[in-house]
Write a protein that binds this DNA or RNA. Structure first.
Length: 185
DNA sequence: CCAGACGTTGTT
DNA sequence: GTCTGG
DNA sequence: CCAGACGTTGTT
DNA sequence: GTCTGG
């Protein structure tokens, strides 16, 4: 199947799920275990995707004692889009008829990895970002062996991102505006 | 063995 | 469907 | 993060 | 007191 650009639900709903709500807790998948977990193993083998994004947020704990966590917006130093590794799944919605065009739900999960030095002081986990020269291999349908999938991800280098200090408003999911990524200080 | 889970982060 | 926990 | 547990083996 | 589960 050729590559497709799609909008998917965030929160992978495994094929065996009885309820769509199962996806609520499948928002992330740990890179260390994607080929082991029953919820992700099949997708890791056959249904990989890339999530394009301008950046993402992480919170830095206060240096000592009390105080609020400080959010940062992490982006590519040159402003290039980021590509997070993810998995997707198709789920047959039992509440919809055979003729319903929406009977198949497409959903995804974003793979996380350990954040090393560059980001380590800000947070300890991050989305697994794929450099452009990994995209072909990651999306290759011929790659189905789970050990080879693990091996591929193990080779992904740590990213070099620019942390931009932003306001605490991003911590409230009700806020959504371009102001959230505006640098402060 | 069988029943129940099946997942991750830790921000407001 | 497959793994985990009791 | 916070609440609750804190243990083992696995057959008719 | 420390680990586990949600």
């Amino acid at each position: 199947m050729a590559r497709q650009l799609r909008t998917l639900n965030w929160g992978l709903v495994p094929s065996w799920a009885k309820d769509i709500k199962t996806g609520a807790r499948m928002i992330n998948a740990r890179f260390e275990t994607i080929t082991d977990k029953p919820s992700f193993r099949r997708a890791a083998s056959r249904r990989r995707l890339i999530v394009p994004m301008d950046g993402y947020y992480e919170w830095q704990a206060p240096e000592s004692g009390e105080g609020r966590k400080q959010p940062y917006y992490l982006t590519d130093p040159d402003g290039a889009p980021l590509a997070a590794a993810g998995l997707y799944e198709l789920w047959r919605d039992p509440s919809k008829g055979d003729e319903d065009a929406d009977r198949w739900l497409w959903s995804l999960t974003v793979i996380t990895t350990n954040a090393t030095d560059t980001l380590g002081h800000i947070h300890d986990r991050s989305p697994l970002l794929l450099p452009a020269d990994f995209w072909d291999a990651w999306l290759d349908p011929e790659l189905t062996d789970t050990e080879e999938v693990d091996a591929l991800l193990a080779k992904v280098p740590e990213p070099h991102l620019t942390p931009i200090k932003v306001g605490v408003a991003v911590g409230n999911v009700q806020n959504d505006s371009p102001d959230l990524v505006r640098p402060i200080d």
